Computed example of a mutant assay.
Amino acid sequence: MQYDRYIHYLIHKYKLYYDAEDAYQQLSIDLYLLTLKYDDTKDFDQYIKYQLNFKAIDYTRKTVKYYERHMLSDKHIEISKEDDDSLWLIDAHHLLNEYEYTWLNYALQGLSVQQMSQLMNKSESSIKGYRQNARLKLKPL
């Protein structure tokens, strides 16, 4: 319980809002495992905070890789004559550049600008720019 606030700090630092509960659970497990590995030659508090920080970074990287692998793509879209949304997404793919299309995928998944920023390793202002450009290009559709 002593490191509960520190774990929440790491979740906010690395913007793990979308998976906050999973991140909290994983970092709590990591904390327990780190206490088992601890040797008396190091300062316990400094050791735990240093190691948990890297565990949070690892979790962030795994999350990014997961979203990149499972991101919506044309091969995942089933096209039916009744489903105009599928056709619209394929048209959108041809109109948008890579970043704008990635923004669209994340927006359709309900992610915030902050979460997109973290997943795409871009600044929030860049994400907002992709959003603005994508909306302008998609307006005629």
Results as ranks from 00 to 15, higher is better:
Lys55Gln: 14
Phe54Glu: 15
Glu21Val: 10
Asn53Thr: 10
Lys37Tyr: 07
Tyr17Lys: 06
Leu52Val: 03
Thr60Cys: 12
Lys42Phe: 14
Lys49Ser: 02
Asp39Pro: 00
Tyr47Met: 04
Ala23Val: 09
Arg61Trp: 06
Ser28Phe: 00
Lys62Thr: 07
Phe44Leu: 11
Asp43Trp: 04
Leu36Ala: 08
Leu16Ser: 04
Asp39Gln: 15
Gln51Val: 02
Leu33Lys: 12
Asp45Glu: 08
Lys49Asp: 03
Tyr50Asn: 10
Tyr14Arg: 02
Tyr38Trp: 07
Gln25Phe: 11
Asp40His: 11
Asn53Asp: 15
Leu16Ala: 05
Phe54Asp: 15
Thr35Lys: 14
Gln46Gly: 00
Tyr38Gly: 04
Asp45Phe: 00
Leu10Asp: 01
Glu21Phe: 07
Asp40Gly: 12
Tyr14Asn: 03
Tyr17Trp: 09
Gln26Asn: 14
Ile57Leu: 08
Asp22Thr: 05
Phe54Cys: 02
Lys55His: 10
His12Ser: 13
Gln46Asp: 11
Thr41Asn: 06
Leu31Cys: 03
Tyr17Val: 03
Ile48Val: 14
Lys49Gln: 14
Glu21Ile: 09
Ser28Asp: 12
Tyr47His: 06
Arg61Asn: 15
Tyr18Gly: 02
Tyr17Phe: 14
Thr35Phe: 09
Leu31Ala: 06
Tyr17His: 11
Asn53Pro: 01
Phe54Ser: 12
Asp43Thr: 01
Leu33Tyr: 11
Asp39Gly: 00
Leu31Ile: 03
Thr35Ile: 06
Thr63Asn: 05
Thr63His: 04
Ala20Pro: 00
Ala23Glu: 03
Asn53Arg: 12
Tyr32Met: 11
Ala56Glu: 01
Asn53Ser: 08
Thr41Ser: 13
Tyr32Ala: 10
Ala56Met: 01
Tyr47Ile: 03
Ile11Glu: 07
Gln26Cys: 08
Ala23Ser: 10
Asp22Trp: 00
Leu31Phe: 13
Glu21Thr: 12
Ile11Ser: 07
Leu34Ile: 08
Glu21Gly: 09
Phe54Thr: 11
Tyr17Met: 04
Leu34Ala: 09
His12Asn: 15
Leu31Trp: 07
Lys15Ser: 12
Glu21Cys: 04
Tyr9Val: 02
Tyr17Pro: 03
Tyr32Lys: 13
Leu36Cys: 07
Ile29Phe: 11
Ile29Cys: 06
Asp22Lys: 12
Ile11Trp: 05
Asp19Pro: 00
Asn53Lys: 13
Ser28His: 08
Gln51Asn: 15
Leu36Met: 13
Asp43Lys: 08
Ser28Ile: 00
Leu33Gln: 14
Lys42Asp: 12
Asn53Phe: 08
Lys13Ile: 02
Ala23Lys: 06
Tyr14Val: 02
Phe54Lys: 15
Leu27Ala: 03
Asp40Lys: 14
Leu31Ser: 06
Glu21Ser: 13
Leu10Lys: 01
Ala20Phe: 10
Ile57Gln: 11
Tyr50Lys: 12
Asp43Leu: 08
Phe44Pro: 01
Asp22Gly: 15
His12Pro: 01
Lys13Pro: 02
Tyr17Gln: 07
Lys13Met: 08
Tyr24Thr: 01
Leu36Lys: 15
Phe44His: 03
Tyr9Ser: 05
Thr60Arg: 14
Tyr50Gln: 13
Gln51Asp: 06
Ile11Val: 12
Tyr59Ile: 03
Leu33Cys: 05
Asp19Tyr: 14
Gln26Trp: 06
Glu21Asp: 15
Ala23Cys: 10
Tyr24His: 12
